[in-house]
Computed example of a mutant assay.
Amino acid sequence: MKDSEIHLMSEIHLGCPPATNGPFVSRFTFSSPLGLGGSSNDHISVDKDGDLLLPRRTSKSFHLMTPGFLFLDSFTVTIQHCITSTLRDVGLQVWKAQLVLSDFVLHKMCTSSQLNSIVCLELGSGTGLLGILLARVAKAVFLTDHGYEILGNCLRNVEMNSSLFNPQAVVNVRELNWMSEWPVDGDCRVPEKYRWSSQDFEQVKSASFIFAADVIYSDDLTVALFSMLKRVMSFGCDKVLYLGLEKRYNFSLDDLNVVANGYACFRSYIKEDELCEQEEKSFVGKRIDVTQIPQYTKGYDRGEDVELWEIKYVA
């Protein structure tokens, strides 16, 4: 069987009804404490598993409290997705590292105002779940992926969840092939709703954060990803990348062992802070301790193989 005919399933979708001809709809519930103001670190309690201990409240709304911290009881994001897909169309599914990165983003929203009113860019947005969360506090969110079926599904999810957004937020779904030039030329073959404008590029220049989740699974794509990151992270102001990945293991005939080759390719691009002593620009990263991030997203098991990284492109 050809690789293009092999269907994959995210473990997030295990237990879903058998695949049908149409898309499946899941509802992801996010919960956190409802604070009373000030630094919300004082209001967060977790159990021994890292899950939040929630106070009993009757309200289900969210609030932006001074100085802009996000406090909430719970809210639900509705996501249209496929239960299985080919490798080329994995962006039609929800993957574990996307949920862990979502937990990280929500934790930042609840404990600081760092993400308030930002312009941000997501690479490999897939279903758009993370971007939908970012739109609750951001000024402008650019969700990017490659392939019109994935982009169409992402746009549909954005539209279904627009009532959750910060009223001032602008969410854009854009086509971005990591093997293309940057800035992207105005390819007339791309449908206008996914096409970049000169105004888009001006906004991305001011983007302070880039996000990516579950984009490390093919060495060719990893090479293309870091090629694109070099150009995007040198475009306009300094940018910080938050990247979530899951180590995926397979048996290697070359190594005669079970290895995570995709992860090794990723790490070949990253220098640890204390080891970076070069004049030329390079990707400098530090691993975020996932165990210190409460699990805001309910109904999934993080496991042991998900990592989050904070990465900068510096000299």
Rank of each mutant, 00 (worst) to 15 (best):
M1L: 14
M1W: 15
L8D: 04
L8E: 03
I12C: 09
H13T: 05
H13I: 06
G15F: 04
C16D: 12
C16A: 15
P17K: 15
T20F: 14
G22L: 14
G22F: 13
F24G: 08
V25E: 13
F30E: 14
F30K: 12
S31T: 09
P33Q: 13
P33W: 05
L34P: 00
G35W: 05
S39Y: 03
H43W: 09
K48T: 12
G50S: 07
G50W: 10
L53V: 05
P55F: 05
P55D: 08
R57S: 08
R57E: 09
S59W: 03
L64A: 04
L64E: 11
T66Q: 14
P67N: 10
F71K: 15
L72F: 15
S74L: 02
T78Q: 08
I79Q: 04
C82P: 08
C82H: 14
R88K: 13
Q93L: 10
V94F: 10
K96H: 10
K96T: 14
D103C: 13
F104A: 05
H107P: 05
H107W: 15
M109V: 03
I118P: 05
G126E: 04
L130G: 07
L133C: 05
F142N: 04
L143W: 01
T144A: 12
D145V: 12
H146K: 09
G147C: 02
I150C: 09
N153P: 09
C154G: 11
R156Q: 14
R156C: 13
N157F: 11
V158E: 01
S163G: 06
N166H: 12
N166K: 05
P167V: 06
E175A: 14
N177T: 04
M179P: 07
M179C: 15
E181P: 05
D185M: 14
G186D: 12
G186K: 10
V190Q: 09
W196V: 10
D200K: 07
F201N: 09
E202D: 08
K205C: 11
K205A: 05
S208H: 08
D214Y: 05
Y217D: 06
L221N: 13
L221T: 14
V223L: 08
F226D: 09
K230A: 01
R231G: 07
R231I: 07
M233L: 04
S234N: 12
D238H: 07
V240L: 06
L245N: 00
R248Y: 01
Y249L: 06
S252E: 00
D254K: 11
L256A: 14
S268Q: 15
Y269W: 04
Y269E: 10
E274G: 11
E277W: 10
Q278M: 11
E280W: 00
F283C: 01
P294N: 11
G299N: 10
R302F: 12
D305N: 08
V306E: 01
I311T: 00
Y313M: 00
Y313H: 04
A315T: 06
